[in-house]
């Protein structure tokens, strides 16, 4: 009871909303990647690994070149490269997409630490200096709005980018030719193929896009919210993003709403100093919530019809 009052008390300050948006965005990027990939018919549980790879290479590049933009670019490419492997294996070789996703996650966890040791020996990887981190941007004028300003207009650059991407991806997916084709490929690849749409190109594009977005999220994590790389630092966020995607019924806006819910959970968890509840219970909540959704207690969530089925032309 007391705990509940304390938690409710948190909502009086803009801080908790600010954190919710920040954490939500961190999940939103890979979740959007998942939406794009699965809408094209390729199951993607590898956002975790792509994000981790992005996080690692962002720090490596930033430490090497002292250029945050280059570092972000490298992270995005690294995420995209992992996605390319997933794409080649599951599209070109018709591999089981879950096995491939599991393998991506394992290889990312192993390779980042392996390379960490190979690159830096047993030295410390070191921390990125503050001026080489992804900056927080205060939007002039708007940030002065009481309450609203601190929540929305004093965020990290990536947060703004992610919101723009959210709007853009939503429009692309449901309003444009490209989006129509992408959805067609994910629902019925043979139909798309016979309509002269290149199924493989779209699927490759979609999977790689998911890697680029996850890579950006990784950079946000390691050189935005943090300043260094630590092994396995994504800590299941890619899986939470996967849950958010399902929660959001494979739509960008739905996924965003789910990300905000999970982000709120993290924001509340941060107040463990003043909340008299076992933090381990709080940590379990997002997962239990997802299970409840999956159990159909909060409305069913139906994936694209051809999600997870490798496309082989001429094979109806």
């Amino acid at each position: 009871m007391n705990a509940l009052l304390i938690i409710l008390g948190l909502f009086k300050s803009p801080d908790v909303y600010h954190s919710t948006l920040t954490y939500g965005t961190l999940l939103l990027l890979p979740a959007l990647g998942g939406v794009i990939s699965e809408r094209s018919g390729v199951v993607n549980i590898a956002m975790e690994g792509m994000m981790l790879t992005g996080a690692f290479f962002a720090v490596v590049a930033d430490l090497a070149w002292h250029n945050v933009w280059l570092a972000v670019l490298v992270a995005i490419i690294a995420g995209g490269f992992m996605a390319l492997i997933h794409a080649v294996v599951s599209i070109r070789y018709h591999a089981d997409q879950i096995v491939s996703g599991v393998a991506i996650n394992i290889v990312a966890a192993g390779l980042t630490v392996f390379l960490l040791n190979q690159f830096y020996g047993v030295q410390e990887i070191g921390s990125v200096a503050p001026q080489f981190l992804i900056p927080n941007i205060k939007v002039p004028v708007l940030d002065a709005i009481p309450f609203i300003g601190p929540i929305f207009f004093e965020q990290n650059l990536v947060v703004y980018i992610a919101i723009i991407l959210l709007v853009a991806i939503n429009i692309i997916l449901f309003r444009t030719r490209l989006g129509l084709r992408l959805r067609a490929v994910g629902e019925h690849p043979s139909a798309a193929d016979t309509a002269g749409i290149n199924v493989y190109t779209l699927r490759y594009g979609a999977v790689i896009a998911s890697g680029l977005l996850s890579g950006l999220a990784g950079a946000f994590l390691s050189i935005g919210l943090s300043n260094t790389f630590v092994p396995n630092m994504t800590d299941g966020r890619g899986y939470i993003a996967l849950a958010a995607m399902i929660f959001g019924k494979w739509t960008p806006l739905g996924a965003f709403a789910a990300c905000l819910i999970f982000g709120l959970g993290q924001a509340i968890y941060d107040n463990t100093s003043i909340i008299p509840i076992s933090p381990y219970f709080l940590s379990m909540l997002p997962y239990i919530l997802t299970l409840v959704v999956l159990a159909g207690l909060v409305g069913r969530s139906i994936p694209p019809a051809a999600d997870g089925i490798p496309y082989e032309p001429g094979n109806e």
Binding site: S19, S226, V230, N232
Partner: peptide
């Protein structure tokens, strides 16, 4: 290990 946890 995870800096984001402590920054939060």
């Amino acid at each position: 290990t995870d800096p984001t946890k402590c920054s939060g």
